Amino acid sequence: MSQANGARLIYVMGPSGAGKDSLLGFARERIGARVMFSHRYITRPVSDGENHIALTHDEFATRLARGLFALHWESHGLHYGVGVEIDLWLERGMPVVVNGSRQHAHTALARYPGAQFVQIDASPSVLAARLARRGREDARQIEARLARRPSLVLPDEAHFITIDNSGLLADAGRRLLETIGAAQ
C-alpha cells in the first residue's frame, strides 16, 4: 500500500503498561482533525482509556475472511485488527496513527514502507506498577510478562524512534506530538 501525497502511517507500539493509550489520547486531544487516529478491533471487552471496538471471535473471523483488516495479529490469546479505512485515509493524504504490535512491526513495514515507528517504553518498575493498577494480571503473570519482553529490531531503512514514558505524561506526549507533526 502506498502512502499518497506524503501521508504517513505512524505505527505506535510498546509493552503493556508503557502508556500507549494515555499518550495516544494526549496527542489526539491536542492535534485535532489534521491526523486520523485509528481504532483497533479486539476480541476483548472495552476498558477505560483504550480506543478499540470489542468483537467476538466469530465477528473477528468474519471480518478477517472478508479482507476488512489492513493489519491484524494475535497476542496473548486475543485477536487484534486495524481496519482497511486507514488505507483510504492515507490515499486521501491524511497522516494515520495506529496502535500496533512490536511483534508485527515487520508486517507493517512491508505494507507501509514509509511508516514512522514509535516505540513507547518505560522502566521495568513503572511497567510493573501500571500493570498491577490495571488489574488484568496477578503479580506472577506480570513478572512473567516483563521477563519475556522481546527486543525489537527493524531494518536500517525503517524510520524509528523510542519515547520513554516513565515520567510525566506531558513530557512524553510532547515528544509524540513532535513525531506526529514531522510525519504530516
Rank of each mutant, 00 (worst) to 15 (best):
M1Q: 10
Q3E: 15
A4C: 05
G6P: 09
R8G: 01
R8P: 02
R8H: 02
L9P: 11
L9Q: 03
L9E: 05
L9F: 04
I10V: 15
I10Q: 02
V12K: 08
M13K: 12
G14L: 04
S16P: 03
S16Q: 04
A18I: 02
G19M: 07
K20V: 10
S22C: 08
L23V: 06
L24I: 14
L24K: 03
G25C: 09
F26M: 05
F26V: 05
A27D: 01
R28P: 04
R28W: 01
I31W: 11
I31D: 00
G32H: 06
V35F: 02
F37K: 02
F37G: 02
S38R: 01
R40Y: 01
R44Q: 09
R44D: 04
P45D: 14
G49Q: 09
G49L: 09
E50V: 03
A54G: 09
A54L: 11
A54D: 10
T56E: 01
T56G: 11
E59F: 00
F60L: 08
L64N: 07
R66M: 06
L68P: 05
F69T: 00
A70T: 11
A70V: 12
A70F: 05
L71S: 09
H72M: 05
H72V: 00
H72Y: 06
W73V: 14
S75A: 15
S75K: 11
G77W: 02
G77R: 11
L78P: 09
H79S: 15
V82A: 08
V82H: 08
G83W: 12
V84T: 15
V84F: 00
I86R: 09
D87S: 06
L88C: 00
R92C: 14
R92G: 13
V96E: 08
R102N: 06
Q103D: 10
Q103N: 12
A108D: 02
A108M: 03
P113C: 13
P113H: 07
G114M: 12
G114A: 13
A115G: 06
Q116M: 12
V118C: 13
V118H: 11
Q119I: 03
I120S: 07
A122L: 03
P124T: 04
P124H: 08
V126Y: 02
V126D: 07
A128R: 14
A129M: 08
L131G: 03
L131V: 02
A132S: 14
A132R: 08
R133K: 10
G135F: 03
G135C: 03
R136F: 07
D138E: 03
R140D: 15
Q141D: 13
I142C: 06
E143T: 15
E143W: 09
A144P: 01
R145A: 10
R145G: 08
R145E: 10
L146I: 13
L146Q: 11
R148T: 09
R149Y: 00
P150H: 14
S151G: 12
S151T: 10
L152I: 14
V153Y: 12
L154T: 13
L154E: 09
P155A: 15
D156Q: 15
F160Q: 08
T162K: 15
D164Q: 06
D164R: 07
N165D: 05
N165R: 04
G167L: 07
A170F: 00
A170I: 01
D171H: 11
G173N: 06
R175L: 14
L176W: 00
L177H: 00
E178V: 00
E178Y: 02
T179K: 06
T179N: 07
T179A: 15
I180C: 04
I180A: 02
I180W: 00
A183L: 01
A183W: 01
Q184K: 02
